[in-house]
Amino acid sequence: MQTRWLNDDEQQTWRAYLWTTRLLDDALDRQLQRDTGVPYTYYMILATLSEAPGRRMTMTDLAALVYSSLSRLSHAVARLEERGWVRRSPHPDNRRITVAELTDDGVAVLEAAAPAHVEEVRKRLFDPLSDEQVAQLREILRALWGRLDPAPGRPGPYPDIFGPEA
């Protein structure tokens, strides 16, 4: 099998994508840490739980939605539990399954963090783009998502992350 090397345009696009996504993630994490002391990973866990029915979700489903291994998620949720933002309990129908639940204190932390976080997302991602470019970016991401998502139709609050088909 012969390697299909990237041509110059593809190489430039790949590097631009790679560094832009790293810089964006880093900027969002810095803002959350600076303003709230909440790492970006923890914010995503809190936000995902906040959108789940009853603010509760199995750890397995939560791990799938935040793209984390179960062991890494368990470690993060343990830290969130220590802060009183999340609680874990056995599933009422199957005690072998653990359910994570966002507490009222966790909701308060999320509500305090969200406005500045959304402003940072706007500033870093949407403000530099025209409406047309935002639509193009969404379509590009939809095409990539369709090839990358290991579990299409996953349960939880994001049945179609991109909204209705255009």
Rank of each mutant, 00 (worst) to 15 (best):
D131C: 13
R88A: 06
V86W: 00
M59F: 00
L141Y: 04
D104R: 14
E82Y: 07
S69L: 05
R88K: 12
V99Q: 01
V77K: 00
T103W: 02
A114N: 11
R79S: 12
V66D: 01
R72C: 11
L80K: 00
A135F: 06
L65A: 10
S71Y: 15
E82C: 07
R56Q: 05
V107Y: 05
V118I: 14
G106F: 03
A76K: 12
I140E: 08
A114C: 15
K123G: 09
D105W: 07
V121P: 02
E101Q: 10
R72I: 06
I97P: 09
H75F: 12
A108T: 05
T58D: 14
S69Y: 06
L62M: 03
Q136P: 15
V99I: 07
R83S: 09
P128T: 04
T60C: 04
S74T: 13
A114V: 11
E132H: 10
V107S: 03
L102A: 13
S69M: 05
S68C: 14
E82W: 05
P90T: 15
M59Q: 10
V134Y: 02
V107D: 03
V66T: 06
M59D: 00
V134T: 08
P90V: 12
S68W: 09
V118A: 14
R72K: 10
T98Q: 05
H75V: 11
D61F: 07
A78G: 10
R122C: 11
M59P: 03
D105P: 04
A116L: 13
E111H: 09
L62A: 02
E132M: 09
V118P: 03
R138L: 08
P92V: 14
L129R: 06
P128E: 02
R122Y: 12
V121D: 01
E119A: 14
S69T: 15
R122E: 09
I97D: 02
S130D: 05
V99W: 01
A116N: 14
R79T: 10
L129I: 02
E82T: 06
A64C: 04
I97N: 01
V66Y: 02
S68N: 13
R87L: 05
A76R: 15
V107A: 11
V66C: 03
A64S: 13
G84W: 06
R122K: 11
E101D: 03
E101I: 04
P90K: 10
A135S: 06
R88P: 10
V99D: 05
A76D: 13
P115A: 04
V107P: 03
E101K: 03
D127T: 15
L80C: 00
R124K: 07
E81D: 08
A64F: 13
V109I: 12
F126P: 01
E120L: 10
E82D: 09
F126Y: 14
V77G: 00
D127K: 07
S74A: 12
R122A: 07
V118R: 14
E132D: 12
L141N: 07
R88V: 13
L70N: 09
A64R: 15
T103F: 02
R95W: 12
R56I: 06
A116M: 09
V121G: 02
R87F: 08
L62T: 01
D93P: 04
R79G: 13
M59E: 02
L73H: 01
V121E: 05
L110N: 03
P128G: 03
P90Y: 07
E81R: 13
A63C: 02
S89V: 14
L80M: 02
V121R: 03
L80Q: 01
L129D: 04
L102Q: 02
R88C: 15
